Computed example of a mutant assay.
Amino acid sequence: MSLRETAYAKINLALHVRRRRDDGYHELETLFAFVDAGDELVARPALQDRLHVMGEFADGLDNPFDNIVAKALSALPHGDGWDVTLDKRLPVAAGLGGGSADAGAVFRLARRAHGLPDDWHARAAKLGADVPACVESVACIGRGTGTELEPVANDLAGTAVLLVNPRIPLSTGPVFKGWDGVDRGPMPEGDLRTIALAGRNDLEAPALALVPQIGDVLGVLARSGAWLVRMSGSGATCFALYDNAEQRDLAHSTLPPAWWTLCGSLR
């Protein structure tokens, strides 16, 4: 019997960087949201763990057998083993939490088949700052390094969203290193729409310095009829939110074919 799970793409509707901590990490306030599409995982019972990676962005994983999916499997009870096929549909190093989303999908698979241990949140956090949020893949607020999660009123479920990436990988480390260290204030309070509209992404400027093509994407999306356009995470993917799917699809039809795109809805 096989189990299937979608690794939902993560976007940061807002991302406020407050300070660099003594341990080298950054203190964050972020608003997580998730798109109803992403990578696909299929798990089948096996005598030992095996991982097969396929899909458009499979080549972006330097060592698929040492990636976060394999690490998530080793961190969770799942019987003798699983034979997992990962269809890598999201670009790598793109600000979409692709690896974290894959790990979150493994946690959901393990929960369905065997249940999760009481300390699952700590196990998820050890794999990456975005992983705890990706386990549930529902809109929430993240604080600390992003692992301290709080619920938020989700008034944007079903909102039409368009993701666009100029097909340029952008590693998180250099973007955070380029942050100017200025605390521009806390993330506002309220529901998803209120926080998103009043929030910002403090990593947008350093990401633009490294990949100026992000500005091209933001400029095109800003003229597409969206009511919110922003870069996600540390980039280089940008998102646009629309009043309806027709507006989103019309905007999508005008984009340069060389860019990677995904049309979906917020969960």
Score class of each variant (00 low, 15 high):
residue 64 P to D: 04
residue 202 D to K: 06
residue 75 A to T: 02
residue 65 F to I: 00
residue 202 D to N: 05
residue 195 I to H: 02
residue 151 P to A: 07
residue 69 V to A: 09
residue 184 R to C: 02
residue 196 A to P: 06
residue 34 F to D: 07
residue 212 P to W: 02
residue 163 L to K: 01
residue 178 G to S: 03
residue 239 F to E: 12
residue 51 L to M: 11
residue 161 V to H: 04
residue 38 G to I: 13
residue 1 M to L: 00
residue 234 S to N: 12
residue 179 W to M: 03
residue 89 R to T: 08
residue 132 P to G: 13
residue 116 L to M: 15
residue 93 A to K: 02
residue 149 L to W: 04
residue 100 S to Y: 10
residue 35 V to C: 08
residue 252 H to M: 08
residue 221 L to F: 03
residue 253 S to Y: 01
residue 33 A to M: 01
residue 124 A to Y: 14
residue 61 L to Y: 04
residue 138 V to H: 14
residue 175 V to G: 04
residue 89 R to S: 13
residue 244 N to W: 11
residue 67 N to C: 10
residue 87 D to L: 12
residue 88 K to T: 01
residue 11 I to K: 02
residue 117 P to C: 09
residue 2 S to T: 09
residue 168 I to H: 06
residue 138 V to L: 09
residue 205 A to G: 03
residue 203 L to S: 14
residue 134 C to E: 12
residue 160 A to C: 04
residue 16 H to P: 04
residue 258 A to Y: 10
residue 31 L to V: 07
residue 12 N to P: 05
residue 162 L to T: 00
residue 56 E to I: 01
residue 132 P to D: 12
residue 198 A to T: 03
residue 206 P to D: 11
residue 262 L to A: 10
residue 182 V to D: 05
residue 4 R to N: 08
residue 114 H to R: 15
residue 3 L to Q: 11
residue 38 G to Q: 14
residue 103 A to L: 10
residue 260 W to H: 08
residue 189 E to K: 11
